[in-house]
Design a protein around this nucleic acid. Structure first.
Lengths: 219, 219
DNA sequence: TCAAAGGTTTAGTTTTACCTAAACTTATTT
DNA sequence: AAATAAGTTTAGGTAAAACTAAACCTTTGA
């Protein structure tokens, strides 16, 4: 029950990403893993025979409890490795995803726990996403999207959505990173863009699509 | 030319281990990777079609220059990861091999170089084996087997052969580790066992099969 | 409600990577 | 030099994991 291929793990991860414990359509699953429909149907059958998912033909797929546990464990590894890559090796946050996608498949319980310890058992990864713990519990996802803050509020950026390389590049350009504090100066009622002001006086505008991927807490 | 499967990399690694640049019999190769003869024949054909090896049927297989470069790169990754696992995560040297066998297949040039830098560009891994450098050069293998030292000589352990779990367990039991210094008190002319004396006076005997896997330099 | 559209599954093919059994080379021994 | 032993390759089979084309459900729209 403990030996899975990379492909299997990728399907499990995708299932978790798309629906958590809910039912997912095979087309969406195929799409997520970058395969065509029939490949997903077939893969899902293999997973079902290992007791990781339940399938209702023409209806959808759902993770079993075992599948859910596995999904969270893979996510744990992914986010721990991301943390390692950024904190210890000095990678930028846009570069780590594809490497962590490989590292998350390394099989060694002991390695995962030693790595977690080495990183001081973090609850959140470099993007601010919660890292599932060894017991399966998931720390709360912190922050609300910037739009939900009223004008004039003081806030701290605590999380960014993984919205692709271009998004991260833009964040770097604007020198936005986790922990930075801003005052929300104004919100355009025309295009919902947002004006932020940093401590040191510089202020700048963020498009709606940028700001909706940035999460903060109020100070 | 830069995209290889894990299986392919395992065959390349085995070929390098068994013969370096020399010709290797397909049976020995199969044996090393834990497969049967026909699997090796087939695998070797795939490698040949990618220009990584040259085959003479019924005679043997040999790495090409590309194959050799790849082999050294994989070995570099393996030994860097071993170093990481021992130095940073606190693994014992007997535990790291199987985990490094997985990690060595992670594909990211940048990761390898950042890891090397993080470890201070080591020339040797935790067993004292040389780590191939980014340019393909291999640092000298240090030390001679204990038997080659005359009675009465002072020596420092600098390298141990990877001779399996039981060997490492025995080393731990005897508290032998890299960097430790001893005086070679006597050599039995009956069974070639060796008597070592540590600084703090304790002395003990090593069987021939133990001592032939332990390498040292004289002080 | 019934038919077209859209999504899903089946059928059949490909590649990697392993296997066993049989055929074939090479080496050894008498 | 011929026979046998040892090692290698071919032949044919299986499983994972992907694909395309065709058949099959479901849903939706006229």
């Amino acid at each position: 029950m403990n030996n899975h291929t990379e492909s299997e793990e990728n399907y499990i991860k995708a299932l978790y990403y798309l629906g958590g414990e809910a039912t997912v359509a095979s087309g969406a699953l195929a799409n997520r893993v970058g395969a065509k429909g029939p490949s997903a149907t077939q893969a899902v059958r293999r997973l079902a025979s290992k007791g990781l998912v339940e399938v209702i033909p023409y209806k959808g797929v759902k993770l079993t409890l075992d599948g859910l546990t596995l999904a969270k464990h893979i996510l744990r590894k992914h986010r721990l490795w991301e943390t390692f890559l950024v904190e210890k090796l000095g990678f930028g946050w846009e570069e780590v995803h594809s490497i962590a996608e490989q590292l998350e498949h390394i099989q060694s319980r002991e390695l995962v726990e030693k790595l977690a310890e080495y990183l001081d058992s973090p609850a959140h990864d470099p993007h601010g996403d919660p890292i599932p713990q060894a017991d399966g519990k998931i720390p709360p996802a912190v922050g609300k999207p910037l739009q939900q803050f009223p004008q004039g509020s003081s806030l701290k950026v605590v999380r960014v959505e993984d919205a692709g390389t271009d998004f991260f590049t833009q964040l770097d350009l604007l020198k936005i990173s986790l922990g930075k504090e801003y005052t929300l100066k104004s919100v355009s009622s025309f295009d919902f863009s947002i004006q932020l002001q940093a401590e040191e006086g510089e202020s700048f505008w963020l498009s709606h699509s940028m700001s909706s991927n940035i999460y903060a807490i109020s100070l």
